[in-house]
């Protein structure tokens, strides 16, 4: 049951988007998100949609997969839309019922919010579908590398992230097993009063915690044994290196930013 949760799912197709340097994709996604929050008219979103659609098309990831990422946050989208719809003040009232009223401004704001959230999710999921978690972590480490000068442990954070990503499936499997083991001892997840239910949850969380700590201890030993001593003097098997397509992509991102913001704000 826990295996249904999907974090950073990777969908290999071997497209050119997959092969881009993760730093390009990080920058592209970041700027894309900024752009959609600056628009003041719908034309801007049309430009975004064309841009996003083209990227999705080139990536070869089926639209169905990308929309799947939206499903868990549908509630959030509806909720935010409703708040904007019903609680925006303005004179251009379209409909009124006691304290609730819908204004034209509200309608517009709600629509903007829905579009922004949808673009935000699809935009970032196209990044995770086309980049392995490890490459992404490398990209983050390298992009934030200059922060090391401020004594921010960028390498350590990146390593922690990649280790967490490696152990998530292992711990999920473990949780599944512990749930089954406690069910075998008569633990019941549906019936019983609140105290019984708490005891059942504890019977799963404690073993999971104990085992996670044990794994962490083992892993720390294994890393020590293989000469790990922090980021200093470390080399890379697969260092990130920009190629021609990455520079071209940066240009495309720049052109998109300038054109979409110009259209979205000033037309």
């Amino acid at each position: 049951m826990l295996r249904d949760i999907t974090i950073g799912q990777y969908y290999p197709t071997g497209s050119i988007i997959h092969k881009l340097d993760p730093r390009v994709k990080l920058a592209g996604t970041f700027l894309f998100i900024i752009s959609i929050f600056t628009f003041e008219n719908f034309l801007g979103y049309v430009v975004s949609l064309i841009y996003l659609g083209t990227v999705i098309f080139i990536s070869g990831v089926p639209l169905k997969y990308i929309l799947k990422g939206v499903k868990p946050i549908i509630f959030l989208i509806v909720f935010t839309a409703a708040i904007h719809l019903f609680f925006t003040s303005g004179d251009d009232v379209l409909w009124k019922f006691y304290a609730l009223k819908i204004t034209f401004t509200g309608l517009k704001k709600a629509a903007f919010m829905v579009i922004r959230l949808l673009f935000l999710i699809t935009g970032s999921s196209i990044m995770t579908y086309t980049t392995t978690p490890n490459r992404l972590t490398e990209g983050i480490e390298k992009s934030f590398g200059p922060l090391k000068k401020l004594h921010i442990p960028v390498h350590e954070f990146a390593l922690m992230m990649s280790l967490a990503l490696r152990f998530i499936p292992i711990l999920m499997e473990e949780a599944d097993k512990i749930i089954k083991a406690q069910s075998s001892r008569g633990a019941d997840f549906e019936e019983g009063n609140i105290f019984k239910k708490i005891s059942v949850v504890v019977s799963i969380l404690i073993p999971l915690l104990v085992s996670a700590m044990e794994r962490a201890r083992d892993l720390a030993l294994a890393m020590d044994a293989r000469c790990y001593h922090g980021g200093e003097g470390r080399t890379k098997m697969k260092p990130l290196r920009y190629t021609e397509k990455d520079y071209i992509s940066y240009c495309i991102i720049f052109v998109y930013m300038v054109s979409s913001v110009a259209i979205g704000r000033f037309i």
Partner: peptide
């Protein structure tokens, strides 16, 4: 399970070499 660091086999084998600063080609 508890001694594999990387999510790809060859990157895991490279872990110690990266730590001791072996040049990329040698790795």
């Amino acid at each position: 399970d508890n001694q594999i660091v990387a999510s790809v086999v060859e990157e895991d084998v490279a872990f110690a070499l990266e730590n001791i600063g072996v040049p990329t080609d040698d790795i």
